[in-house]
């Protein structure tokens, strides 16, 4: 049974490893997109003009309310039309085809962003208003306030929530296998189809996900500890 998992032409070890690499790539890219979209959406919700605020609220409500799988199918069938239409606005008339990779990263990122936005909004609101007023009274520039007062503290409040968003984003990448992107689930599916050993390959896939989620939880806990340095704790 172990030779099925070996590295090389007869085993599926290398395919699974490549799949795991693809899973991590999609997850990291989608998470970064999500963080960017989340910051912008949170900013729009907190201090944007009314139409922007309305747009941000619609985005987070709708995307958090429908299954990620539906978002993936929507972009898979409708994404190239949308990009083609936008390209048309810039005078490009050709057909646009979106790859499975692009669809996967964009849709998982879109979902990630909606959840990240709520986490970031809550974290920014948790920073005491008095500190921002004090900074302004001292004549601090807006960007300086953001960099020195708001961001470091909001980051500390946001870290646990952002850790959860990362775990969710990682798990959502499994859904991209439905559009045949060769990530871990897809590779396990192909391997179990041709070897008739589905239990073995899905178990291996599950273990790989388990290792990634456990390691990243440790990582986020270390980040949290670092962000918490210098914060006084009540001891019982």
């Amino acid at each position: 049974m172990l030779d099925l998992l070996s590295y090389g032409a007869t085993g599926w070890g290398d395919e699974l490893l490549q799949g795991a690499g693809m899973t991590l790539l999609v997850a990291v890219l989608a998470y970064l997109i999500g963080l960017g979209a989340g910051c912008l959406t949170a900013a729009a919700k907190l201090s944007g003009p009314l139409p922007l605020r309305w747009l941000a609220a619609t985005y987070t409500t709708v995307v958090r309310g429908v299954p990620a799988l539906l978002v993936i199918w929507l972009l898979f069938y409708g994404g190239s039309g949308l990009v083609g239409w936008m390209a048309g606005l810039f005078g490009y008339g050709g057909r646009v085809e979106l790859s499975a990779f692009a669809v996967g990263v964009a849709s998982v990122g879109l979902v990630s962003g909606a959840y990240a936005a709520e986490v970031i909004r809550g974290a920014v609101q948790a920073v005491p208003k008095g500190q921002l007023e004090a900074a302004r009274a001292l004549g601090m520039h807006r960007l300086l306030i953001l960099r020195r007062i708001l961001a470091p503290q909001a980051l500390r409040y946001a870290l646990p929530g952002l850790g959860n968003v990362w775990q969710m984003t990682l798990k959502d990448t499994t859904l991209v296998s439905v559009v045949s992107l060769a990530e871990l689930m897809r590779q396990a599916y192909v391997a179990s189809g041709s070897t008739r050993q589905p239990f073995l390959f899905y178990l291996v896939a599950a273990l790989v996900y388990l290792v990634i989620t456990t390691l990243s939880e440790t990582g986020f806990r270390a980040l949290s500890r670092r962000a918490d340095r210098g914060v006084r704790r009540a001891t019982a």
């Binding site: 990682l170 798990k171 499994t174 859904l175 296998s177 689930m185 396990a188 599916y189 589905p198 239990f199 899905y202 178990l203 896939a205 599950a206 996900y209 388990l210 989620t213």
Partner: peptide
């Protein structure tokens, strides 16, 4: 672990 893996298993 992701739900999809659980379903497939």
């Amino acid at each position: 672990t992701p739900l999809l893996v659980q379903i497939f298993l």
